[in-house]
Simulated assay, not measured.
Amino acid sequence: MSLSLIIITAASLVTSANTVSTAEPLASPPAGIVHRLTAKDAEAIQEAASRRAIDRVAIDDLHVPDGQIHGEIGFGVGTGGYTSVFGAAIVPLGDNGIAAFSFERTNFGRRHYRY
């Protein structure tokens, strides 16, 4: 070890030993303010929400299948030779069936480990 490193280490130990103080316990924080709805306000909000939900079509009732394949593809290029290709597709089968496919291929380039 070099002499300067020994001197710096010794000086830091001496100064840290002299500055140790005991911590005083903290007072408990004041209680927060609680805002509550009255029973009448809660019923009015629930009634308004139930009326709003009746006007909409349920998600299960929507006719989503249109006979087409839907999906996504993507790629990534990075440093050190990193490349990645990925994709997913949902294929309709008949009137009420689907098949889902996905793939992914990643090459980490010159690195033999993940980032």
Rank of each mutant, 00 (worst) to 15 (best):
I33P: 05
E104C: 06
F103C: 01
F101T: 08
Y113W: 14
A23S: 12
P92D: 00
H112E: 14
R36T: 14
V64D: 09
A11G: 02
Y113L: 09
V77I: 15
T79Y: 07
S102H: 13
A89I: 09
N107T: 03
I33C: 04
A27L: 09
G87M: 00
T79S: 12
Y113P: 01
A44T: 05
V34A: 06
F101M: 10
E72Y: 14
L5W: 07
V85E: 13
D61H: 05
D41L: 03
I73K: 10
H112P: 08
G80Y: 01
A31G: 05
S21N: 09
R105T: 12
G109E: 01
I33H: 10
G109K: 01
I73Q: 12
N18V: 10
L93H: 04
G76D: 15
L93E: 11
V64M: 11
G78L: 00
D66L: 00
L26G: 06
F101S: 07
T106P: 02
T38E: 00
A44D: 12
E43C: 03
G97H: 02
G80V: 00
F108G: 06
T83S: 12
P65S: 01
I54T: 12
D61E: 14
A89T: 07
L5V: 12
A23E: 14
S4R: 13
T79I: 12
A99L: 09
S12C: 13
P92S: 00
G32R: 09
D55R: 13
I69M: 01
S16N: 07
F86Y: 13
A10N: 04
T83M: 07
